[in-house]
Lab assay of single mutants.
Amino acid sequence: LVRYRTISKIPQITLNFVDLKGDPFLASPTSDREIIAPKIKERTHNVTEKVTQVLSLGADVLPEYKLQAPRIHRWTILHYSPFKAVWDWLILLLVIYTAVFTPYSAAFLLKETEEGPPATECGYACQPLAVVDLIVDIMFIVDILINFRTTYVNANEEVVSHPGRIAVHYFKGWFLIDMVAAIPFDLLIFGSGSEELIGLLKTARLLRLVRVARKLDRYSEYGAAVLFLLMCTFALIAHWLACIWYAIGNMEQPHMDSRIGWLHNLGDQIGKPYNSSGLGGPSIKDKYVTALYFTFSSLTSVGFGNVSPNTNSEKIFSICVMLIGSLMYASIFGNVSAIIQRLYSGTARYHTQMLRVREFIRFHQIPNPLRQRLEEYFQHAWSYTNGIDMNAVLKGFPECLQADICLHLNRSLLQHCKPFRGATKGCLRALAMKFKTTHAPPGDTLVHAGDLLTALYFISRGSIEILRGDVVVAILGKNDIFGEPLNLYARPGKSNGDVRALTYCDLHKIHR
């Protein structure tokens, strides 16, 4: 019993810090008490220290592992850092350059016999395009090294910054494609005289377009951006097909006994025919423009016929181009109408809503002055909100995010209106959640004399007048207030005048 009563005193000691020596009952000389009392004092002292730490809000209350900052290894790049964003855009520009100039170089340097010394005699450094290609190869190699040090988000939505895990993730992902696209074939085969082989191998750079397509997928929600990307894709495919079309004609031209190829026909049409040795002929500019003209006309199913396939190889390629053109029509131009419709969806919704308003007016036989006010209010409210119901949009977000959005939407009023000066951010967040926005066209009466005042109004834009009878008592403008002081009276009061809008007004109100 003594032991039980001794232990039962522990909660009292913990909360009230009572010393055991003052209790005459606990001072009985028993061996059990002498053993338990020192333990009680020690526990009391420890609990006292913990309570003191909690009340003082000291940093040592938290466990040590929670006080440590997340460790980022040296030379690790955050995937959302500004440097990584700028670097990704730079790589994107280099990939676009590669997609345009690599097929052009591979096709127009394929057994090209233009006048001038061969590239091997001039030297590697004197070729501007080769120098640019070398810079692109170096940048792609540097990009691989950067990807080995860039964080990523795993399946659990955690940012991984450990170098080993980053390397394994990159090896399992895009490393092989990036490595093949970054191989400097110019340096590996330079001086061997195989410019045709170098041009063909350099087309491996186009593998990076797969990554670019995935990154550009984030802009699919913007109709104008999608339309622009589709047109660029169409032009890029036409450019690639033009390079292939020229390569076919250029390879067949020296081996044909009869002059029936499209390059021969082009030379005869523009007065620059090929001679018996295969030299001469149109310039590279004429060849490229004509090839691009043929691919565009074939892809769009126009086909004027002034550039036509004559050999079997050219006919087979033309059939493939027609098939590609039909697929592009289905996948690209078939979506253009939907994209344009999405661009004008706001206008369509406006006309639909206006039609419903006019049908309501016609069905209920609203008189002319009231009908005009109804239409003007709808037009003004639509121009202010673009038909978007803010309350319906915010309803799907958590309250903390709703408060931040409301604070942002009402920031101008909260910053410049005098009653809100000096208020804490928590108070402003709470008030912003209570605001209701209303609009009024010129001549609209917001409050009639004798109406119950259940709200306090803040003028965000425009001006109003307060009338008693036919006498203008006051004219209020931006950041002015009218209405009933909230919670100042037990019952809502009545208006002693009319409140009429002089201009288009936007008002925020808080109800009782």
Rank of each mutant, 00 (worst) to 15 (best):
G280C: 01
E375K: 11
L207K: 01
E114V: 13
A181H: 03
P117W: 06
L187Q: 13
R208Y: 04
L236Q: 01
L206H: 01
P117C: 04
C232D: 01
G280H: 01
Q127S: 08
H162Q: 10
V159C: 06
W382D: 01
I141M: 05
Q402V: 04
F360E: 03
L409E: 03
T311I: 01
A440R: 07
S297N: 01
T120F: 04
D186R: 13
F363A: 11
A338I: 15
I146K: 01
D217G: 05
L227S: 01
L229C: 09
L67T: 13
S283H: 01
C126I: 01
I340H: 01
R358F: 01
T424A: 10
D143Q: 01
S220I: 09
A392H: 15
S277G: 04
L394P: 02
K84F: 04
V336E: 03
I405N: 01
S276G: 06
V136E: 01
G303R: 01
T150F: 01
P118D: 03
I72D: 14
L201N: 01
G199Q: 13
I388Q: 12
I332M: 04
T300K: 01
L446W: 01
H169S: 05
H448D: 02
P369G: 08
Y222A: 10
Y104L: 01
M251S: 10
L207C: 13
L197I: 11
Y274W: 04
D143V: 01
S337N: 15
A167T: 04
P441A: 12
R362Y: 01
A69C: 04
S337K: 04
G303I: 01
G164F: 14
I91Q: 01
G422V: 09
T295W: 01
Y288V: 01
H351G: 03
L327V: 08
T290A: 01
N368M: 08
L90E: 01
D186S: 13
D286Y: 01
W75Q: 01
R342G: 10
P369N: 07
G396M: 10
E121N: 09
G261M: 01
C126L: 02
I270L: 08
L370G: 02
V307N: 03
L431K: 03
H439I: 07
E252M: 01
G267E: 01
L413R: 01
V168K: 15
V447L: 12
F108E: 01
S345E: 10
K418N: 11
W75K: 04
A167W: 01
T120V: 07
I141D: 03
K111D: 11
P117K: 10
A291H: 01
H448V: 08
G281Q: 01
Y97W: 05
V212L: 13
H364W: 05
Y246F: 01
D133I: 01
V142F: 09
I146D: 01
F304N: 01
K66S: 13
F435L: 09
I339L: 10
C406G: 07
